[in-house]
């Protein structure tokens, strides 16, 4: 089971992502953007890690989305292989049209991840980059999506975010309704009890309906703003989380990578 962890100029989460991939028992290697795109067909799954590809020039993810390797990834997506985009990886998947993935497969861009706007009681209280741990609620049924394959609906995950552009907006009529109906909204920001409260600090970036992660219709491609690879060991959790006291245990984010592995096994 071979996973390519994609590396664009400016990517900066590839090393910890590779650790995550390998620790759950998959083979993995870094795949530099200027390698021959044809080599990608030899892999069983893909992770586009976080960072600032091309320094977020023009807007986050757009320049990387035009690289030849992304066309090759589209081919692999059609084959049903799992692709997980984390943070900047999510932004790249949106800009390349792989997410949410139009019904007709046109590759049209159907949404944007705009600048964070933190709103509380109708007022903008903060803007821009933000790093903190957040609570996520899994809103899709298990087996719906590659990267949350083994996670039950309603399960809560504590993972960190660190981004400036994660505010999901769209002008495509009916898109949000469709994402909800088809269970393509995989994670939402919530409070510690799993309640969705659509304002800061719970909705941490102003995203429509507190959406933190979505998948495509087929469920094999997932994009998420939070970083599961940074919540991979219990010791990485914030001080006030009681699980931190059991440092040898897995962290909540590990289930995303375990899901990917299980998804590949089931679909093999």
């Amino acid at each position: 089971m071979k996973i390519a962890v994609m590396q664009f100029p400016g990517t900066n989460c590839e090393f910890e992502t590779l650790v995550a991939v390998k620790t759950v028992g998959m083979d993995g290697e870094l795949f530099r953007w200027n390698r021959s795109a044809g080599e990608l067909s030899g892999f069983d799954g893909f992770v586009i890690p976080g960072g600032f590809s091309y320094q977020d020039r023009l807007r986050a993810g757009v320049i990387a989305s035009k690289e030849p390797v992304m066309n090759a990834l589209k081919e692999e997506a059609i084959k049903g292989k799992p692709i997980i985009g984390i943070c900047n990886g999510f932004q790249i998947l949106v800009e390349s049209g792989l997410l949410p993935g139009s019904v007709n497969g046109s590759g049209k861009v159907d949404m944007a991840l705009a600048q964070n706007v933190m709103v509380s009681q109708g007022k903008i209280v903060r803007r821009g980059y933000y790093c903190d741990w957040v609570n996520l609620r899994h809103d899709a049924p298990s087996k719906r999506c590659s990267a949350s394959f083994i996670i039950e609906r309603g399960a809560l995950l504590k993972v960190p975010i660190a981004h400036g552009e994660g505010n999901l907006v769209t002008t495509t009529p009916g898109l949000i309704e469709k994402l909800n109906e088809e269970s393509q909204v995989v994670f939402r920001y919530c409070d510690k009890n799993g309640r969705i409260i659509n304002e800061f600090p719970f909705n941490v970036n102003g995203s429509t309906e507190s959406i933190a992660a979505i998948c495509n219709e087929q469920g094999n491609v997932l994009g998420m703003m939070p970083h599961p690879e940074r919540a991979f060991f219990a010791w990485q959790l914030p001080a006030f989380d009681p699980r931190k006291q059991r440092p040898d245990e897995p962290g909540p984010g590990r289930r995303v990578f375990q899901s990917m592995k299980r998804y590949i096994e089931v679909n093999a």
Partner: peptide
């Protein structure tokens, strides 16, 4: 094709 994302620009 490049300069805008129509959902915000």
């Amino acid at each position: 094709k490049l300069l805008i994302n129509p959902h915000k620009d």
